[in-house]
Structure formats: C-alpha cells, structure tokens
C-alpha cells in the first residue's frame, strides 16, 4: 500500500538537452525543473508551445532519457517496464492503428498488458461501454471522428486500471457533453486514488479539475501550486449575492470606496454557455 502523501512523480533538477548530429548541444528543452506529483491528485502541466511540456511527459513515459537530474515514477526509473504496467497514457494525437476496429485496438493493447481470457474480454467491454463506443466497436478507428478517436484513446489508457494516468489534451476535439463526462470521469478516478497528470491548453478545463498545476516556460517551472493558491490574490475579493435595490447597492459601493480608496467594479453574473448547452441538449435527449 502506498502512503497518501507518497510522491508518484518526483523530478529533481531534471534537464533534457537535445544534441545535433555531431553531438553538440542544440536545444535545452527542459532546464533543471523540480516537480512533485502526489498520489490521488490531478496535476496540470501548463505552458505555451515549446515550453518543455511534451519533453517532460516523454521523460516520464521513459521514451526520452534525462540528460541530467533525477526522475522517479511510482518509485522507480521511468524506463523500467514494470512501471509501465501501472501507467496509462493518452496522447494528444490519435496514435492508433487506423486499420483496426475499436474492439481490436483495445484487445491488442490488453494483450500488451498480458491480459488474457475472460478478464480481458470483460475489461474491454466495460471500457467500450464507459467511453460510449458500444455502437461503434466494430468500426475501424480510421473512420472515427476526432472525438471518437479521443474516446478510444482514453479507453486504452485505462485498460490496465493504472495508478498513474498521463493525458495530453484529453478534452480536445470532444463536444461539451463528452468533455463534461471526461472531466467527471477524471474526478471520479482521482477520488479512487488514481494520480492524473494532464497537459492542456484548455485553461478552463484545467481550472475545473486540477488540484495543482505547474506553469512551464522555456523549459523552466515559472509557477507551481494549488489552483486556489494561484488564483487567489490576498487584496482582491469576488462577492456574489442576490441583486439588492439600487439605493442599497450605491450605499455599499460608497462605503467600500471610502474604505479602500477605489470604486468597486460591479458585474452581472449570468449562466455560462456551457451550462446552457448541457441543459438544452440533456432536456432534448431525455424528451426523445
């Protein structure tokens, strides 16, 4: 059993330098980063293109070797094959065999995990059901829409019931309902004690589900901490309340202006487009 606070990913002074043909340093993609990802948390890796996110993920997956520093995944070297049996990875692009059907894809990857017999069949069936591809299980992946390909990508990442799940842009290409479902699924997995590392540009999604994030820039960690810590600033507050009368509102604003020296900003809070969309589509679906 792992301790609650046990570090699932531990990077110390992790550096990756890519060399040119002659062995000379070409690009310092990751530059001495420190990263701690704890068991059961959803950790977001943010940063612009070329900031070193993918290189970091590839080092965690054991596809690239660190130039210097230390990296431990689930207490072992990321290159150890035994670690990979406890990991699941969903890449950004669909790196799947397009000539295989959804069913064949999952069976193939299940074989790679050494799964056989009824345990394999049951797991594959359950995952196809869970990602909503029951109707398309015999269709070739090459014929899938981007959203469907993402779903099958997610299913293969969960085949081995992993302790650590790495997701690269998990909601990209998904419609809002599917996106919500994926986010709910990830939150449920985290509640089960799974550790999730997400790489994404969808900051709203990251804000929704991540417990902690790290922002990478030019191969270095610029900021890290819990989402709440990063979003909260001690001298600014957001107050949400039922709209009072105009007189009361003006009196409160005057009082606050006298206290702080600046006039507070008043906005009308409404529903988000996402909530309207989900509500509308859900109503229509339940009616039909």
């Amino acid at each position: 059993m792992m301790k609650d606070e046990e570090l699932v990913i531990e990077a110390r002074d992790l550096t990756k330098v890519f060399l040119d043909f002659w062995g000379r340093p070409k690009v310092r993609a990751v530059n001495g980063i420190h990263l701690d990802v704890r068991r059961g948390e959803i950790f977001g890796l943010l940063g612009p293109n070329g900031s070193g996110k993918s290189t970091t993920i590839k080092m965690i997956l054991g596809l690239l070797h660190p130039t210097s520093g230390q990296l431990s995944v689930l207490g072992q070297s990321p290159r150890a094959v035994s670690v990979k049996s406890r990991m699941g990875f969903m890449p950004e692009e669909s790196y799947l065999y397009k000539y295989l059907t959804a069913d064949e894809i999952l069976n193939f990857y299940a074989n790679l995990y050494g799964m056989t017999g009824s345990a394999k069949t049951e797991r594959v069936n359950a995952l196809i059901e869970q990602v909503g591809l029951s109707q398309a299980r015999d269709r070739r992946v090459g014929e899938f829409s981007k959203g469907m390909a993402r779903r099958i990508g997610l299913a293969q990442a969960l085949l081995n019931d992993p302790d650590l799940i790495l997701l690269d842009e998990p909601t990209s290409g998904l419609d809002p309902i599917a996106c919500r479902e994926v986010k709910d699924l990830l939150l449920a997995l985290a509640r089960q004690g799974k550790t999730i590392l997400i790489c994404s540009h969808h900051l709203a999604d990251m804000q929704d589900i991540c417990s902690r994030v790290a922002i990478l820039l030019q191969g270095e960690v610029c900021a890290t901490g819990s989402v709440q810590e990063l979003l909260s600033t001690p001298d600014t507050l957001k107050l949400t309340l039922q709209a009072p009368s105009q007189t009361t509102l003006m009196a409160v604003l005057d009082l606050l202006e006298r206290e702080t020296g600046t006039r507070p900003q008043v906005d009308l809070t409404g529903r988000t487009l996402e909530s309207v969309y989900i509500e509308t589509v859900s109503k229509r679906k339940s009616a039909s």
Binding site: L61, K84, L96, L112
Partner: peptide, 14 residues
C-alpha cells in the same frame, strides 16, 4: 515516424 510506436512503448513491452 507516425508515432504509433510511442503508444505501444508506453505499455509494459520490452
């Protein structure tokens, strides 16, 4: 080249 192998090698495959 088309990165299909990346996914295979993230599985417990020597």
């Amino acid at each position: 080249q088309d990165r299909r192998l990346y996914l295979v090698l993230t599985k417990p495959v020597h």
